[in-house]
Design a protein around this nucleic acid. Structure first.
Length: 178
DNA sequence: TAAGTGATCTCT
DNA sequence: GAGATCACTTAA
């Protein structure tokens, strides 16, 4: 965490309105928070995956704006939730400026690993699509002062993106702490 | 290791 | 309207 001052607080909209790769990196060690009724669940984020810009062939946005991926073109700090494999919801947080399609897939946390298991565990579905990441939404991010050393962060190719071609499938856009 | 599940996309 | 695709999990 270099660019952004770390404090024990809810990550604001402008945290996400920055380069996607920087946000992907700095989101590690932050907490994904979900409030259902009076109960709040906090999970430490350990794995993220970046989908950055219109040129990224692995991104839903690579073939232009559609009804489904429209949230990626919206302003930073809102969720992009989509359904895949007939069963699973995927939770992404939109990054970068408006009209620049980018988002980060939240792949795993300390207690719950796997993007689909995460959404199932936290009861996240389409209703969070396009919603801002705030307490009011019931789903938000917090910086609770956890420090992740750069040496602890592993960067690897993204999952399931062989179709994106030799250049984009090899990008080290997946961030993981050990 | 393969089946399951269904929205979305891309072609007719 | 039909058929392929898909950034996954589970059960075996």
């Amino acid at each position: 965490m270099i660019q952004y001052e770390r404090m024990n607080k809810v990550l604001p909209q402008n945290f996400f309105n920055r380069p996607t790769l920087a946000v992907s990196d700095e989101l590690l060690g932050c907490f994904l928070c979900r409030q259902i009724g009076k109960k709040t669940t906090r999970l430490k984020i350990t794995e993220t995956e970046a989908y950055d810009g219109p040129e990224d062939k692995a991104s839903h946005a690579s073939r232009g704006k559609t009804t489904r991926n429209a949230p990626m073109f919206g302003k930073a700090g809102q969720f992009y939730v989509y359904f895949t494999y007939g069963i699973h919801w995927m939770l992404n947080i939109v990054t970068g400026p408006k009209d620049y399609p980018a988002a980060i897939l939240i792949r795993g946390t300390d207690k719950v690993t796997g993007p689909a298991r995460l959404t199932k565990f936290l009861s996240i579905d389409k209703s969070f699509n396009k919603k801002p990441a705030t307490r009011k939404t019931g789903l938000w991010f917090e910086d609770r002062g956890e420090v992740i050393k750069q040496s602890e962060i592993k960067r690897t190719p993204r999952v399931g993106v062989a179709y994106a071609g030799p250049v984009w499938s090899k990008k080290l856009y997946r961030f993981k702490t050990s």
